[in-house]
């Protein structure tokens, strides 16, 4: 019996061994290494030199770009995530009623999130918002003469990136659609009998029943928002005046352009703490607004 049990346990570990190897070699060890490196001066060519908390002190007190890029990223997340989720929810509500064309609409709205983070779309965005690009030309057709260089002005550049993020609302929309379809119909029927109008139904039935889905989406999108890289790196290259320089791009520049890998590790760890902290905070508040059906 014990030998058989031992064997069974061994086989279990054998099956999950690819994951354990990957988790230890490519995640745990690198994470610990990076914590260690964050207390050193390291340029990959010469051995790391221990400098204590200096990287963190420099970050907080002497590096204006650290605060700048952190602020830019926060701004981006603060607007792109809620806007994207609102758009996803609104369109999901529109598409939830079955119809001949709903599958077609779903496809069209989903397409941008499949291709949106590619280099090809980044190149397209660059041309669209150029001063002689598609947006200005179409505005001209509507009688609004515009030669704004959307990507070149500090007030507008970040919004083109936010727009690109909102454009990719499709995958969240699909998750909302799946969630909406799971809300039992009898709830709405009962509400109709009680004389509730659609506003009441939306706030008293749809939103609470959908709140776990919204919660899940929010956390997912929050993490993705903080990690945005390609958009800033290709479309705006952080310009103008670093108003679109995302945190991850700055981290990349420090580590691989200026060879300050120790500093880069410190930046990475600060981000882990912020994103982890925000996620934990959301989990703490979920009791107040996320409704879980008890069976």
């Amino acid at each position: 019996m014990t030998i058989k049990k031992k064997r069974e346990q061994l086989v279990g570990y054998l099956f999950i061994s690819p994951f354990i190897i990957g988790f230890v070699c490519f995640i745990s060890i690198p994470m610990l290494l990076s914590l260690g490196f964050s207390f050193t001066k390291y340029d990959i060519l010469s051995p790391p030199k221990f400098i204590g908390l200096e990287n963190y002190i420099t970050m907080f007190t002497q590096d204006p770009l650290f605060w700048k890029t952190f602020g830019v990223t926060m701004f981006y997340v603060l607007f792109s995530v809620p806007l994207r989720l609102l758009m996803a929810l609104a369109v999901a509500l529109l598409l939830v009623r079955p119809g001949k064309l709903s599958a077609f609409y779903r496809t069209v709205f989903y397409l941008p999130s499949i291709i949106g983070s590619s280099v090809a779309i980044a190149i397209l965005w660059k041309r669209m918002f150029a001063s002689n690009g598609m947006i200005n030309a179409l505005l001209g057709e509507l009688g609004i003469q515009s030669s704004v260089a959307w990507l070149g002005r500090s007030g507008t550049a970040i919004w083109t990136l936010i727009l690109l993020a909102v454009w990719q609302f499709g995958s969240s929309m699909l998750i909302f659609l799946a969630g909406l379809k799971q809300i039992p119909r009898y709830l709405y029927e009962a509400a109709t009998v009680d004389g509730a109008n659609w506003i009441a139904k939306f706030f008293k039935i749809t939103l609470p029943m959908l709140s776990p889905t919204i919660f899940f989406n929010l956390i997912n999108q929050l993490i993705n928002g903080f990690m945005a890289f390609t958009q800033s790196f290709i479309i705006t290259e952080g310009k103008p005046q670093n108003t679109t320089l995302f945190y991850v791009v700055y981290m990349y520049q420090n580590s691989f352009k200026y060879n300050k890998l120790g500093y880069g590790c410190a930046l990475a760890w600060f981000m882990v703490l912020v994103v982890g902290g925000l996620t934990a905070l959301l989990f703490l508040t979920q009791k107040r607004w996320v409704y879980y059906e008890t069976e």
Binding site: P30, M31, M227, V248, M251, L261, A268, M271
Partner: peptide, 16 residues
């Protein structure tokens, strides 16, 4: 590991 984005471990992975 599902929640952990690539960007967080890219520097130490590169060193490795």
């Amino acid at each position: 590991s599902m929640m952990l984005p690539f960007q967080v471990i890219m520097i130490p992975q590169y060193i490795l």
